[in-house]
Every structure is written in structure tokens, then in C-alpha cells.
Design a protein around this nucleic acid. Sequence first.
RNA 1: GGUUCCGUAGCUCAGCUGGAUAGAGCAACGCCCUUCUAAGGCGUGGGUCAUGGGUUCGAAUCCCGUCGGAAUCACCA
Length: 597
Amino acid sequence: MNLEATLTQLVAEAVKSLYGFEAGVNQIQIQKTKKEFDGDLTVVIFPFVKAARKSPEQTGQEIGEFLQKNNSLIANFNVIKGFLNLSISKSYWLDTLNQIHEDAEFGKTPVTDNSELMMIEYSSPNTNKPLHLGHIRNNLLGFSIAEIQKANGWKVVKTNIVNDRGIHICKSMLAWKLFGNGETPESTGMKGDHLVGKYYVVFDKAYKAEIKELMEKGMSEEDAKKSAPLILEAQKMLLGWENNDPEIRQLWETMNGWVYAGFDETYKQMGVDFDKIYYESETYLTGKSEVERGVEEKAFYQRDDKSVWADLTGEGLDEKLLLRADGTSVYMTQDIGTAKLRYNDYPINKMVYVVGNEQNYHFQVLSLLLDKLGFEWGKSLVHFSYGMVELPEGKMKSREGTVVDADDLMAEMIETARETSQELGKLDNCTPEEIEKIARMVGLGSLKYFILKVDPRKNMTFNPKESIDFNGNTGPFIQYTHARIKSVLRKAAESGIEFGKVANTSLEISEKESYLVQLLTEYPAVVRQAGEEFSPALIANYIYDLVKEYNQFYHDFSILKEENEELKRFRLVLSETIAKIIKLGMGLLGIDVPERM
RNA sequence: GGUUCCGUAGCUCAGCUGGAUAGAGCAACGCCCUUCUAAGGCGUGGGUCAUGGGUUCGAAUCCCGUCGGAAUCACCA
């Protein structure tokens, strides 16, 4: 039982014995004591004053005395207004520290055969252009959520649905065919996804030129957009694709192959991965047959023009198209098909979609549709909806060239990390390989942390300059603290100090030190809550708190110079435990922490 | 217009299952490297928690209205 639960019980006993008051669980409020006051934990007295028929101060005093008398856990107490501040005995903190120190899996709920399975979909790129900053937020959130749920005892399957078919891919293909001169990633040295993206832009330019030309001839913009030769040709290509035209299929496979090779590189650099990848080209037909099944089962209906609709007006939404009059599928159809296949492939207990908040409506509808089709988890699917990433100068717009490319950004972060450590002379006695490895950890760590520390639901501003600034609430600050602790531990080991655990648990430690132990005890609760709320930000901010407190501690004491051997050993154990939690916590965010930097 | 989300320091963000004087970082200024890594620490200044009401012993937090901003309401994906 944890400390808070124990205290809740003790307080319940106290008020019952003192005032005959049967307190409900909600009425006993225990919280961390604010820094300005003495004590570790605080009991809010207000709920009991009515039953006690005394002033809050007096009531607090009585409860405090009762607790102290009946339990050795409470070393001391004070009452300020309606708040009873309890000081927990030092030996409790020392015992607790020993326990946390020994537990390599602290804060983790083990995954067993009985664990439920959570499937998490994230990334979900289109194959016509490279990944950008928005995808980075998606990928980092998806990966981190998967790690967090694993730590909470879920079996997790990470999945990716690749949108590999449609008019947008045909645009790239057509432009490459017309203007590409047979360029390949090998011949140009470009990453495959960038090469294909380049031709997507080429298409757009040429298409716009055609529209302009047609408009100058007096055509309306709307008509020009519809009748420009290039778009007609692209549509023809899409039709050819659907009809399995061998030449078009060949080109499609080749160019998608380039893109996948490029994506793999980006994913690897970012440190994310997937257990199972689905492709829309393989799921959209299933979607069609599922929708047809829905028509047969009267869940959906067909209009006179043969188009298929779902009537969601009963659920407070509109009617939703599921198949066009010509029988071709829409986005929703494909998602239904993908869901069906996943359901066949895995015993899914909970399905999570990591997708931007611009699709909130889509997932609201999808949830209802899956439910109508009889998927048990349809209703309880989670749309992990996150906000957009904006730049200081406004939104990212591909047309205006304000998109931040994922590969470029990561490379830039790593480069900056390298330059910074060089300037500071931090890595003078490291090998080039070590320097490279550390620069990568730090550069990517700063990017990841910057993005993950923000509440996912909120839109956020990504300031490239600020993210490369390694001060304050940043990844490098945390990594730096970890590296410094490791450095102390190395020195301690060199001088032959042993610190397996704290032997003398009646040691007098300072308030600051017991507070650090208290912070450590909160880690499992933070992990649990982060899982429930799907919020890596909770973990990020917790670790920052811990690190900030530890840094202050470090400046107050000199560990290795401490004369009292017992105290020195305690501080080494404390430091080592904090380093462990930093590593575990950052691991849940997908961030590596270096041993030195 | 309907629905959903957001509004906290000049800027970027915490805090939101109601509790004490609302916290960090950045930016500005002033200190601290004969001390385990100064990518650090300490200090100073900076707030009508968008706004008006309600609920109560107590509201940044819960409820309602208003004002601002975003997303969405496609036979796009």
C-alpha cells in the first residue's frame, strides 16, 4: 500500500474515533505539502469541521495529535488554517528509497498472458510526399503512447496504415513520366520520398500553368481546374490503376518502393517502428464488401443512384456517404475495411487511432459505423486527437514553401547539438563515433522533448530557434543531469565506494533529500495517469520537476566530498535512483539518455 | 449557422478529480566556476488566470452566458 492510501486510512480512523464521523473516500483529501510549509503531506481539514464542531485549527490539531500518537510513521505535524501538515519519519523515506533503488522495473506493470491487447495506429502517411513536422508530432506521440501503455501492462501492437493509392499518387507518377527523364533515387542521390515529392510539386506547378492558360482564354476557374489536360490524364491513370493496367501498376510499385525506402530511413532516424503495416490498396476492397454487408443487414441504405449512405441523424449527426454512385470507395470505406482486417488479425480489446484533430468528426462517425457493423470495440475506439503544429510565422503551407521537412529538421537538430558540445569542449576525449552517437541523442532528444512536453490536445507553436536552445525545460537539460549523475557514479566507483543500499535507516537527512525521495515515489502514479489520459506530457513535466529539484540539491551539497560515509552512500543511492527514473521516464517518451555528454 | 476544442506573465508552456500567497522556462538585469560537467545554480522585476454571472466555507479549476481564436460540417484523403 502506498503512503497516501495508508494515510487516508489513518485519517479515517482518526475522525471516526474523535468525532464519530464516517468519512467517505472523497472527503479525505491528501496532497503534497506546498514548499513554503513544513511537512511532506497535507490533510485538508475543512470536510471534518462540521462534524467536529470546532474551528479548523483546533480540529487539525486534534487529528494531528491523534495520528502522531498512534503511528510511528508521522514524526511531526503542524496546522496552518485548515491544513494539517504531516512530516513523515526519515526512516520511512530511507526504506522507500532502498525499495525503489532495488526495483529495476519500478513503475511498470508487467505484461502477462492475460493482459488485454491495445492496437495503436499512428503515422499513416501518404506516399506522394516526404514526412513533415506534423507527422513528427504524430509519430512521436504514437510511439510514446505505445511505450506508456506497455508500461501499464497492455499488450501493444503498433500499426501503420499507408495511404498508397489515389489521385495524389497518380499526380506524382504522371509528372515523373512526363518530365522525369528516368530519374531514380540512385541516379540523383535523393531519398526516394523526396524524389517522389519533388514530382508532386512539378505536377502542381504544371497544372497551375495550364489552369492559368485556360483562364486567359476565357474559361472560368472552376471549369479550368476540371478540364486541364494534366488532371484529366491523372484521372485516367487512376482508372487504369483500378483496372490493373500492368504498366501503371508497375510504375506505381516502383515509385512507392522508393517512397517506402525513404520512409524507413526517416522512421529509423526518428526511432519509431511498427509491428504491422497495412496498405490501403489492400484494404479498400474489404471496406466495400463490409459496406455491402451493412446494406444487406439494413444498417445502411442505398439511394436510387446506387450510392450507399449511413443515416446518423438519430445520433445527432448527418447522413454519411460510404460508396459513390459509381461504386468506388471513399476514405471512410477504407477505414472500415482496415478495421475489419485488423479485427481478423488480432484479438483487439482496444483500438487507438493517433490522428490529428481535424478528423474529429471522421472518427466520431467511424465509431458509430463500426458499431453498426457489429464490431465490439467500435464504440469504445479511442481517437487520440492532437492539435496542429504551427510555426511562429503562422501555419505550415506546402504551397508557400513553409513546410518543415522531417529529415531536414532532424539533421539540423543533430548538427546543432554537435556544434554546441564542440564549442563547450564537452566531448574532447571521445571518439568520433561516440561524439556522433551523443550528438544524435541530444539533437533528437531536444526535438522530441520539445514536442512531447506539450499537452497533445493543444495546438502548439514549434519555434525552431527555441527548440535548439538547450536551456530550461528541454530534453538536453534532462539528459545533461543524467550524464552528470553518471559521471559522479563513475568517480565513486573509481575510488572504491560501495553503495548498494542505505544501511543506516535512522540517518538524519535533510528536508530537500526526503522531498526528492517523495518525488520518486510518485513516478508509478504518473505513469498510470499518463496511460489513462494518453498524455506523454505528464511524464515529461514530471521528469523536468525531478531534474530541476535534483539540480538544486546538487548545488547545495558536494556528494563525493561528504565526510559522513553513511550520508555519502545515501546520496549516491539517491542519485543513482534518480538517474534510473530519468532513464525509465525518458524511455517512455522514446528519448535516449547518454552516459556522458 | 451547427458541433468540437482552445484562451493562464511580453513569448513558449505547467497547474484543471475545487483548497494555502497561481508556477516553470525564454527574454531583461545582478550575482556564483581553487567544489562531482556553468548545456548549471541563486536573486530581482513581470498576472483583473479572456470576460460577466452562478454553485460554496473556498473557483484558474465545476455550471451558464458573452467575446476572441482554431478545427470540422465534401461523391478530398
